[in-house]
Design a protein around this nucleic acid. Sequence first.
DNA 1: ACACTACTATAACACTTGTTATTTTACTTG
DNA 2: CAAGTAAAATAACAAGTGTTATAGTAGTGT
Lengths: 188, 188
Amino acid sequence: MARKEVITIENILDTAFAMTRTEGVSNVTARRVAAKAGCSTQPIFRVYRSMEELWTAVYLKAVDFFQDYYSLYPRTGKTPFSNLGMAYIAFAREEKHLFELLFVTGVEQKKSMYELLNGEKGNVVYEVNRAAAMGCPAPGDLFMKMWIFIHGAACMTLTGDYDLSDVETLELLERSYEAFAGEKRSEE
Amino acid sequence: MARKEVITIENILDTAFAMTRTEGVSNVTARRVAAKAGCSTQPIFRVYRSMEELWTAVYLKAVDFFQDYYSLYPRTGKTPFSNLGMAYIAFAREEKHLFELLFVTGVEQKKSMYELLNGEKGNVVYEVNRAAAMGCPAPGDLFMKMWIFIHGAACMTLTGDYDLSDVETLELLERSYEAFAGEKRSEE
DNA sequence: ACACTACTATAACACTTGTTATTTTACTTG
DNA sequence: CAAGTAAAATAACAAGTGTTATAGTAGTGT
């Protein structure tokens, strides 16, 4: 009945998301996406009502991307919240622009930091329960402290003020947990 | 010999800085500064070679502003780094846009976080020495941990994920210091 | 008082943005 | 194959950006 569609909504979104990863969402403009996707700006406004709508779609894709990233991250830490922290800090290092979009750019925050972190699987709840099972008297309070710490390290990677290796980071996170949990450490 | 200048460099810079405080540096455009200062864009380009130069001047003024803010902040904390943390977190809360410019926007970072924090008076060095005098075995390491923690809390205020009161924050910082310093706390 | 000149305002240039009107293209259907 | 139609390309609009050319203005020195 008519011409066949050649530029799909996936083409547009994938292109915009890839651009966000490499150059940040602020560089995702109609003409630049079109150029990258090898078409004019018209197909964009056929599948999305406005650029705002595309940016929202990119944000939601970034949310899923982070969930997958966290799910697939290896769990080498023993103390609660250490794996959460390792994945989060690695994500900030490896995906600076996505991290910024999800956890730093506060203006049009669609989801709270806790929602993003907890995810659909209840990541945070799982860790908190684990801490409780290990005998932690105030696991919620401990999560808050650990989370502030983890978020601080992650944000510092953006500005180049944090450059510890993964091994060092894991060590740091586990010792911090112990410190917050109130265990006394021998000064070996 | 000629006409008298009516728009001074202070007028321009003060206007641009005030705008940065209230709406962020990204809204400091030539025309908007001119409108706010009650003149055309021409005086701006007489005293500054380009907008880039004005933005740099705003950044440097923000550096001084933070130094003054820190100097004038009341010192109610007893443990090392607690006053540093209180001032820093309060600054993030009260001056979101300046905090973002100085400590979050990493791209064109002129000064490192440590430089900004230590200042001309050696704020950090002072606190580290204090920790050492109090018998802390690794004051540098402790500073790093405390700083990650403090920075995390400050960054969370930007996204609305941290909303503890000053009293609660002071308590949090002092307990964190004790935890990192290795003191065992009784579970009263 | 007049001429000179530095400062300011107006207007324009070149560019980028989101968005939309118009035209061309290519496929499906009768 | 011809007609119709939806998709894509081209081009334009209106607004905003930094920056600069031009014109006007107000004060100073002779």
